[in-house]
Structure formats: structure tokens, C-alpha cells
Design a protein around this nucleic acid. Structure first.
Lengths: 159, 159
DNA sequence: AATTCTATTGTTAGAAT
DNA sequence: AATTCTAACAATAGAAT
């Protein structure tokens, strides 16, 4: 179809309201940020790590990972990271039955009789909870890999 | 004086040879990178941390901090950070007599009879060693502060 | 959710402070 | 070593795939 765009427009740097546009912007700007970091490393021999934390949402009221981050106080990064890993270990144990076999188990749960009788809103909540859990497990995997064999700049950004 | 610049020229993304130009480029691009990270955080509600490690130079042959980073293997970030802090503690102890009182002590050492009788090249080496030590102590201070009360994005880039 | 297209806004190299 | 100025480069918003 014919492109009707007049091209880029100036945007104010405030939190975007439209979630859909926000996701597109996040994708694009993440690529741009990593490119900038990579260029700075190459040009100047610097070593840069970029990391993002999972966003806090309504389903994360028991999210120890996030709470550990927000309450670090004077403890320093090492304690913070250990807290995060400990919290993740606990959360993982809780969600083990749903996630122990990866995507296969996720699918089986979604298709099982367990979810019969749940309201639409309850299904929505279950879905969000599972997605939240998946993010945590993926994040843990990233933490484990950090510093292992990744060429610099190490980059991880979450969304 | 009249500006003779024809304006920006395209640069190849390879390590810069001219140390002076490299420092200028580092300064400018660091500002740009932080701005990009900050905008991404604000626009998309993301939480980003950017961190840089001190560069490895000829005076860092005993630099435990860097070695810890380069040899992290499968140990993960928490171990890495602890190693770095432990190494820094040791290095700090070694350099304590020179740095315990901050800049004042640094000046006193440079002006003291201790350095009499040193060759120019030896003085150069001492200067570099002290600068390297200063960077490590400053970095340790940054590590201690991380996660305490810094508004996101947390940004630290070294040079 | 990541990518493409392109008009437009944003970043920065070089020279100098 | 960080900043300023400005003419080039480069990144990206919006629309669409």
C-alpha cells in the first residue's frame, strides 16, 4: 500500500501512553543503544556492560527479584545480585511444576483440564503469571551466562 | 580564531590510533550513550544499567580487578563482583600508604624526598601506577554506591 | 514483536576553547 | 579532559509488512 507517512516527528521524552507504540520504540531504540555501545567499545577500547531489569507489573506483587533491586540500600551490587539469584531460585521452585520442562510443559498446562472452569479473567491472570514466570527464568539464565564467554560489550535489555 | 572545519567526516568503526582524539570521542559518545539510555528508560519505562570496566594497560600486569573480569568462566556475575571487590580491597591495602588521605596524600608523595633520585622514566612509571591505583579506588566507590539510591538508569563508564 | 521505508530530527567529527 | 560550534552523518517516528 502507498506510504502516507510525512516522516519522523519530534517526540517529547515522557513515558509513552500507547503500549503498542511503546513496544515498537523499545525494539528500535534498544538496537540503537547497543550499536552505540558497541561502537564506543571498538573506537575507544572501552568495555561496557548494559543491563535491563524486568518491569514491575500488577502480577509482580510477590516478585522478590524486583523487590531485592528496589531495596538494595547500602548493601552493594554483589549482595544485590545474590539476593536476586536467591529470589529467583525460590520463585523457580514455586513455578517448577509449570515450567520444569520448558515450553512443552507450558503448553500441556494450557491445554490441560486444570484450566477448565476458570473464568476469562482468571485465564488472563494465569497467562500473565506464566509470562512473568518465564521472564524470571530467562533472566536467571542471562545472569548465569554473564561474564562467561560473551564478547564485550555485554548487552542485555529486558522488556 | 576562524573555524576552518568542513564539518564532520565519516569514520570507520575501528580502534582509534590517536590517543588524544580517542579521549575526545570517548567523552562525547559517553554523553550520547547515557542520553540514549535515559530516553529509552523514560519513554518505555525500562530500567537500564550501563557499566564500564577500567581499561587494561601496561601498568596493570598485577591488576586483579581486570583479571577477575576476564576469567569469570561459568561463575556468574555475583562471584565476579565479589572477586572484584576482594581484589580491590587487596590492591587498596597495598596502595594505602599512598592513597589513604586522598589527593592530599597523593600530592605529598609527589613532593616528598622519596621520589628524589628517580629517573624521568621511573617518575613516569610512578605517575602511571598512581593514576591506575586512583582509578581502582574510584571504581570501588562506585561499586559500593550501586543500587543504593541512584535513580535509574544507573550509568558508570570508565576511562 | 521485529523490520522496512524515508522524511525529519538527532548526533558527532573536526577545530578550537 | 570536558565543551562549544556547525556541517555533515546517523538514528528513528510513523505507517506498513
Amino acid at each position: 500500500m502507498a506510504r502516507l507517512s510525512k516522516g519522523r516527528k519530534k517526540v517529547e521524552i515522557v513515558k509513552m501512553k500507547n503500549e503498542s507504540n511503546m513496544q515498537v520504540t523499545f525494539s528500535k531504540r534498544r538496537v540503537g543503544l547497543f550499536k552505540k555501545a558497541s561502537e564506543l567499545c571498538t573506537l575507544c577500547g572501552a568495555e561496557i556492560a548494559i543491563m535491563g531489569l524486568p518491569p514491575l507489573n500488577d502480577d509482580d506483587c510477590h516478585n522478590h527479584l524486583i523487590r531485592a533491586h528496589r531495596n538494595t540500600g547500602q548493601r552493594g551490587l554483589n549482595k544485590e545480585v545474590m539476593d536476586m539469584q536467591e529470589s529467583l531460585r525460590k520463585e523457580k521452585a514455586i513455578g517448577k511444576s509449570l515450567l520444569e520442562s520448558g515450553r512443552g510443559a507450558y503448553d500441556r498446562v494450557c491445554e490441560s483440564p486444570i484450566i477448565e472452569g476458570l473464568s476469562l479473567s482468571q485465564l488472563e491472570q494465569l497467562k500473565k503469571a506464566l509470562e512473568s514466570q518465564k521472564r524470571k527464568v530467562e533472566f536467571e539464565a542471562e545472569l548465569q551466562q554473564m561474564g562467561s564467554d560473551a564478547p564485550l560489550p555485554f548487552c542485555h535489555l529486558w522488556k
